[in-house]
């Protein structure tokens, strides 16, 4: 089957990707601007990167964000994987409908509502707002995304592999750890990365649940942006974009290898 790209197809692809990438590119370019004014080019300079690393508050916010993201993504990965197993492997159990609803609801719930409801909960149980409340909130928000990713893998999982392991003498728990877990591991890693990024990125839920000493990077950036554009933010963004791009390229290379392997498997 030959599919040919028409001029129209090529044009829409070029325009589409230009639309997606031009703003990011401009942001990166202007982080090397010598001028204090973000939109006026004043020559090449890396001074804002220096200023960024000297900005104690920003560095601290980055550190808090990273810790929250790591911790919440780790817990969310465990909980999300368990939920995915429950949904695919446990058939009907009491309250399954409610469970399914609760798994999917946080994904479609507006962030302002999730943020507000969790805050009111933390106030009601008298938990001091700060690092832990944001972590708990992010875990709840992101575990659902982990569930969806892992569940998709489990649904295409060849059950006869597990049956073969049991047939060969492996009890259920050992079957899980020696066959199921290694095979769904890529989706669990993908789920973790998704949860990590979402937590890193979240402004709304974190704003509701933050407290003294727990200012995350998005909250910091948001308050600075409201005061006006700053080349320092451009520099911080460029570093973040660079890290994410590197991570995505690495992840793509790794998954490409496993896709190739499984594709050969299918023949």
């Amino acid at each position: 089957m030959t599919r040919r790209l028409s001029i129209f197809n090529v044009t829409s692809l070029v325009m589409g990707f230009a639309f997606l990438y031009l703003p990011i590119l401009l942001l990166v370019v202007y982080s090397f601007n010598a001028s204090r004014l973000v939109t006026v080019w004043g020559g090449f300079s890396t001074q804002w990167y220096g200023a960024l690393f000297r900005n104690q508050a920003l560095m601290e916010a980055a550190w808090v964000t990273l810790r929250i993201a790591l911790l919440s993504a780790s817990i969310a990965t465990v909980l999300g994987t368990l939920a995915a197993l429950a949904l695919t492997r446990y058939g009907r159990f009491p309250g399954r409908t409610l469970f399914t609803g609760m798994v999917y609801a946080p994904m479609v719930m507006p962030e302002v509502v999730t943020g507000l409801s969790l805050l009111l909960f933390f106030v009601a149980v008298d938990l001091d707002r700060g690092f832990w409340t944001i972590t708990l909130a992010h875990t709840t928000l992101t575990m659902c995304f982990v569930t969806v990713v892992v569940q998709a893998r489990l649904m295409t999982f060849d059950r006869s592999l597990e049956e073969a392991a049991m047939d060969l003498g492996a009890p259920p728990l050992r079957t899980f750890f020696s066959v199921t877990l290694p095979l769904i591991a890529p989706s669990i890693v993908a789920g973790f990365l998704l949860a990590f990024t979402l937590s890193l990125d979240d402004l709304v839920v974190a704003s509701f649940n933050t407290g003294p000493g727990a200012t995350t990077l998005p909250i910091k950036i948001y308050s600075q942006v409201r005061l006006g554009l700053s080349p320092e933010i451009n520099a911080a963004s460029t570093i973040l974009i660079g890290l994410v791009t590197l991570g995505v390229i690495l992840a793509t290379l790794i998954s490409k290898r496993s896709v190739l392997r499984s594709r050969r498997n299918a023949h």
């Binding site: 006869s160 592999l161 073969a164 392991a165 049991m166 009890p171 498997n265």
Partner: peptide, 20 residues
């Protein structure tokens, strides 16, 4: 008696070879 305690082994239609 669960499958892992039976002196019976099976060759699966899909072969079910562990890909890893």
């Amino acid at each position: 008696v669960p499958p892992y305690r039976r002196p019976v082994n099976m060759m699966f239609q899909s072969y079910a070879l562990f890909p890893h």
